[in-house]
Amino acid sequence: MVEVHLWSGLRAQAGGREVVEVEAKTVGEVLSGLVAAHPELQEVIDAGVSVAVDGRIIASGLTEPVNEDSEVYLMQRLKGG
């Protein structure tokens, strides 16, 4: 299982939790795992999120690998000027 840290503003959609455990080998599976565990997260994930895996910020790629012991943080979708 991979521990996924949410930003605290998402607690309301994740049953009050800030860390959710999901079965995942890729960033895409992290996101689908989150929605499976907490369907209310669908809207925010559809609107766009980024994922930090061991400090590396994945802006959008779903195929990026994730390990069991990876440190995974959900982040708001990155964009720029």
């Binding site: 503003g9 998402l10 959609q13 209310e40």
Partner: peptide
């Protein structure tokens, strides 16, 4: 407003972020 906004805020508040 999307689901991130806590209840009780004015409808002009359309998104909310909290982290730390």
């Amino acid at each position: 407003a999307d689901k991130s906004v806590p209840p009780g805020l004015h409808p002009n508040v359309v998104r909310y972020h909290q982290s730390g």
